[in-house]
Design a protein around this nucleic acid. Structure first.
Lengths: 144, 144
DNA sequence: TATTGTTATACTCTATAACTATA
DNA sequence: TATAGTTATAGAGTATAACAATA
């Protein structure tokens, strides 16, 4: 490690500051207040990745399974997600979207509720978006 | 579900996932016990940016001033920050580090408690760090 | 009136602990 | 014993609201 710690601290600090502000921005920009960010996140993953378990979701996002279970419970209470049995392993419960869950996601897309995605599209060129995507891959490496 | 980026995963979602995991990582890696992430963040800003007000800090990080005030109050309670009068404007209170605050920051640096900074230093080349820094500037643009 | 700051309160997010059921 | 899931509880972080003091 070099002695130029202040430079690295600056990147780390800037990273923390920027992403914190981005998350707050997304949270406050959420229109309907219908769903929290974590709920939307889980809903999308269940939609895209097909039947998944709570443990799957936790591993993918490096969360405790209890934390994911809390979010899933809220979605089940709202009738957006359903737990189904896995006949191969009765401990597992496969999560799938209900019709209401699918409808809500479709409505969100139509209503333009993907605030961050729109900001990225509107304010960054294609080349800049590519650069950000590459940097995210680099940052992902810090998590291994 | 593997943690890899899927075809349908947008930059926005990947951004949210990566930075969320990074923040959690920092929080759990913090030797804790002493200070929370937000407290460390404010402490550093007071150190670097000299005498600042609560409003200054709030504007810089796009937080409500009440939120910053809560963090500052915790630091004052711990004797790490002191509020001083601004003779030019009696509404303002200038925040400065106490000796204990300065000592704690110095100790953190020596003890290698800057986890994120060390991860960046250890796992990214200089060129990659530069790329991340540039991307942070791009992301900062989304906040204006 | 506008700005600066504080305090009180509530909500989101996520962790830890304790428990049940199945492998 | 190990794994999958749920529920309870606690803490960090931040927002909104209400208020006081100063400009």
């Amino acid at each position: 490690m070099s002695g130029e710690t202040s430079d690295h601290e600056t990147i780390a600090e800037e990273l923390q500051s920027v992403v914190g502000a981005l998350v707050r921005r997304m949270r406050s920009a959420s229109p309907g207040r219908e769903l929290s960010l974590s709920q939307v996140s889980v809903l999308k993953r269940v939609d895209w990745d097909g039947p998944v378990t709570v443990t799957d979701l936790a591993r993918a996002d490096k969360l405790r399974h209890q934390s994911v279970a809390a979010t899933v419970a809220a979605l089940v209470d709202r009738g957006l997600v359903r737990r189904t049995a896995d006949s191969d392993d009765l401990r597992r419960k496969l999560l799938i979207l209900t019709e209401a869950g699918r409808a809500l996601l479709a409505e969100r897309r139509l209503a333009g509720h993907e605030h961050l995605a729109e900001l990225i599209d509107d304010r960054l060129t294609a080349a800049e978006q590519e650069q950000v995507a590459t940097s995210l891959t680099l940052l992902r490496r810090l998590l291994d």
